[in-house]
């Protein structure tokens, strides 16, 4: 390329950037703060401790939990000019080592509503090898019928007639009649809105209460359904309770 031409191009570019910069300085910069979102898991009003406590479901069946993991994705606060997360997929794990918090950037303001998906949106179920929370290393991917296990609970119960009285619920399915991905919408109580101010961090604690897992839209008895490890009608039935699992515990 001839030097003169290059220069000409450059001038054009400089002019463009100058223009952009000017318009920038007129625009009001958005004041942002941080919202830290934390998930806690409870049953019978207690925090869930794996392989430890015994809980009772609404049908009087006692059980303990060895594994409890689920995906939440695409978290959003409507109207908050939220900065898109680099990686909007989070795997909540009830194990003690797991943090179960993530942060998002919102415009300063007061908000009442939040939304997220319980599960991994259908697109990411069929887009090949993923990383981060979606890495198949996390043992949440079905290899014979591709797709993510959206919610996984394993434990044991005297009510279970399965081998070693186990409970194994791997709830997944991203398409057609067996799609279990559940949109969750929650609102804060009056006087407890999410207040975001510049430079400050607010924490939102969301409670996942396993009591509702057994009985919400559908009654799931351990004695009847100790195992559910494929997508299908049972998986879908269990997932019909998902919408009642979550509530806002605290905003601080």
């Amino acid at each position: 390329m001839n030097k003169f031409l290059l220069h000409k191009k450059m001038y054009g570019l400089f002019a463009m950037i100058l223009f952009c910069m000017c318009s920038f300085s007129f625009a009001q910069p958005v004041k942002r703060g941080t919202l830290k979102v934390t998930f806690v898991q409870t049953a019978n009003g207690k925090d869930i401790v794996l392989r430890d406590s015994v809980y009772t479901n609404p049908f009087g069946e006692t059980y303990s939990v060895n594994k409890l993991k689920y995906y939440v994705s695409n978290f959003s606060v409507p109207g908050s000019a939220q900065v898109t997360e680099n990686d909007p997929y989070h795997l909540v794990n009830a194990s003690e080592e797991s943090i179960n918090s993530f942060e998002i950037q919102l415009a300063a303001g007061t908000y009442q509503n939040i939304e997220f998906l319980l599960g991994v949106d259908s697109a990411r179920n069929c887009s090949g090898a993923q990383s981060g929370a979606l890495d198949p290393m996390n043992d949440m991917f079905w290899t014979w019928n591709s797709g993510y296990v959206m919610f996984k609970m394993e434990g044991s119960s005297p009510a279970s007639n399965a081998d070693l009285q186990r409970i194994e619920h791997h709830i997944g399915g991203y398409k057609g009649p067996y799609n279990v991905i559940t949109p969750i919408k929650l609102s804060t109580a009056a006087g407890h809105e999410i207040k975001i101010s510049e430079g400050n961090s607010t924490e939102l604690i969301i409670e996942m209460n396993l009591d509702h897992y057994w009985n919400n839209a559908a009654a799931i008895k351990i004695s009847e359904s100790p195992l559910c490890t494929t997508m299908g009608a049972l998986s879908k039935k269990i997932a019909s309770n998902f919408s009642g699992l979550f509530s806002i515990k605290e905003v601080k």
Partner: peptide, 16 residues
């Protein structure tokens, strides 16, 4: 047709 993408196909034989 249980495997929906060529990239995730190896997960099946690797872990079966």
């Amino acid at each position: 047709g249980g495997v929906n993408h060529i990239e995730v196909q190896p997960l099946n034989p690797l872990t079966a």
